[in-house]
Structure formats: C-alpha cells, structure tokens
C-alpha cells in the first residue's frame, strides 16, 4: 500500500493531518514545544486573544473532578499587541498551521481583533470563541444566543478571507441551530465543543472549590457529550466540524472522526502527556494501515447507524 494520506481539507484550510492542539491548553506553543514536535501535527490553536491583555481570574482557578477538571482561567492572555510582538515570532518559525483563537466582550472587539490579526501572514485561520460574556448586553454569553453567534460570524466574515471556525458552546439545548447559523453567515467550519459549565463544592467549608464558583468542565468526562454534539451537527447541517472534548488518545480521535469530525483538537490531555498529539498522529496512521484506509478523510462521518 502506498503512503497513507492523513491530509484534511476544511474549506480553504488544508491540514497535514487532523490533529490540532486546542485553545487554552498549549499557550502560544513555546512551552509545549520542549516536549513535542509541533511540526508533526495538523496545527495549533492559540490561547484566546483579546484586544487588550487580560489578567484572568483570581485563584483558585482549577480543580480536578472525576476523569475531568473544572477551569475558570478567565481568558488570561497577553492581548493582541503583545501577541504579535512576542508570540508570533516563535509561531512563525514553525512549519505548522497556526489558527488564532479570538475572544471578546463586544461585537466591535471581535471585529477589531480579526482586522488587526488578519495582516499576520503566519495566521492561517481564525477560531472564534463565542463562550465569552457580552458586557454590553448584561454579561450573557454570546455563544448561548443564536442571534449573536450569527451576528459575530457575519461581522468577522467581512474582515477576512481566511477560514473562520466558530467554536460552539455545548451549554445550549440545540447545538445544530448554532452550526446552521454559522454556515448561513459564511463561516467555514465549527468546532465543538467548548467546556461545559460545572461546579464543585467543599463539603466541610461549604464553599465552591474554585473562586469563580462555576467553571468549564473538560477532559475524558465530557467525551460522550462532545461526541453526541458532533453527531447532532453532522446529521443536520452540512458544515465541516472540528471535534473537541476529552480526547486522550488516537482511539478517541478516530471515534470523533467516525461521528463526523473532519479534524480534532486535543485539550486537557496535553497537561498530562504533552507529547500526546504526536502519539495520536502515529496512532491514526497505524489504524489506517490496519484497516486498509488509504485516505483518512474517508473516515469522516462514516458511522453505521
């Protein structure tokens, strides 16, 4: 058999393989590069960037839960200006696809961020994090309101011809409605899922274990939910999906591709095994070999129900 083809195409976005690193779980790439070969994976999604630097939430920001963790980092990041000056030079040197994740508190801020970052040649695509509070509208989460997700997609679309991926919140009754509006407003793909809202309390002090009271649940505990969300989108909307949620190894990655993900992102697993993404790439290749699969893209949505 000839060399197995691991490449994936998502609209105009070409990936050398389906394995991406999830936003917020690899910083801006430099620390994790000591453990793993970033040139070997499909791409890196950088930590959510906002227009101005954000200090983030006070500690305690994280707590472990059964097969998962809650985080309330509060989108701590260096801001667009420092990102360009100090983080892009490292990312530029890599032979890796860089997807820039953007977070904002107003519609205008999303637009401004994309406008500025669009000039950076090293950024191949944008991932829009809509799981942020809308400060002008009572702090409700943008991503939980289908109208806002539509408006954001439409507005950033006007600012760039680079691929736009909208990262969907799972904390909604029907995620496929959100995927549909992204498609209608010209988004190239959706990624699913961001973290699920959760909390944990200390039974002796009766206080929340994280200062923010609630946080985002991630890790293997959320995988079944994430798979169901990806499947729901796949069955209702014709848009490429990037699957995220609890992927710990190549088997999990394959499972996501079968239910409909064109590519996958590895998040929490990086904290435990910072080389896991490279191991997943190897595992995908081996799986394809053993199953006589020539093009990995043929797996996408290949479920038998």
């Amino acid at each position: 058999m000839s060399e197995i083809d691991l490449t994936i195409t998502i609209g105009s976005l070409k990936l050398k393989n389906p394995v991406l690193l999830a936003s917020g779980t690899v910083g801006y790439g430099n620390e994790i590069s000591e453990f793993t070969d970033l040139n070997k994976i499909g791409g890196i999604v950088t930590k959510s960037i906002s227009l101005k630097p954000r200090k983030g939430n006070p500690p305690q920001r994280i707590v472990e839960t059964p097969s998962g963790m809650l985080n309330a980092i509060g989108l701590a990041n260096v801001g667009v200006e420092t990102f360009i000056k100090e983080k892009i030079p490292f990312l530029e040197k890599l032979n890796a696809t860089i997807i820039c994740n953007i977070a904002a508190s107003t519609l205008e801020e999303y637009i401004e961020c994309v406008r500025i970052l669009n000039n950076e040649n090293s950024i191949t695509a944008f991932e829009i994090n809509v799981s942020c509070p809308n400060v002008k509208d009572g702090g409700l989460i943008f991503g939980n309101d289908v109208l806002w997700v539509g408006k954001i997609t439409e507005s950033v679309r006007k600012e760039t011809s680079k691929p736009i991926i909208v990262k969907l919140s799972p904390n909604v009754p029907k995620i496929s409605e959100f995927a549909l509006v992204v498609k209608k407003e010209g988004g190239d793909a959706v990624s699913a899922i961001n973290t699920l809202v959760g909390t944990a309390f200390d039974i002796y002090t009766r206080k929340p274990k994280i200062k923010n009271v609630t946080g985002g649940l991630s890790g293997p505990a959320i995988k079944p939910i994430a798979l169901a969300k990806v499947l729901e989108i796949k069955r209702t909307v014709d848009i490429p999906i990037i699957g995220i949620g609890g992927i710990m190894n190549w088997k999990d990655a394959i499972e996501f591709m079968i239910v409909g993900a064109s590519a996958i992102q590895v998040g929490t697993a990086n904290f435990i095994n910072p080389n896991v993404s490279n191991e997943i790439v190897d595992g995908l290749k081996e799986y394809c070999k053993s199953q006589n699969i020539q093009n990995i893209s043929s797996l996408v949505g290949s479920y038998v129900i």
Binding site: I32, G56, P59, Q60, R61, N71, I73, N270, P274
Partner: peptide, 23 residues
C-alpha cells in the same frame, strides 16, 4: 504550592499575585 493542571506554564491554572498587581 498551588493546585496545578500542567506544571509547565500552559494552562494558567496556578497564578500568584505580585506586588505590582499582576499574576
């Protein structure tokens, strides 16, 4: 000490406040 998820600077889970009002 702090609760940690990664231990090497990628999760931002272990902040300590500094006198210049940063983490």
């Amino acid at each position: 000490e702090s609760v940690m998820a990664c231990g090497f600077g990628i999760c931002q889970g272990c902040p300590i406040e500094t006198v210049d009002n940063n983490y």
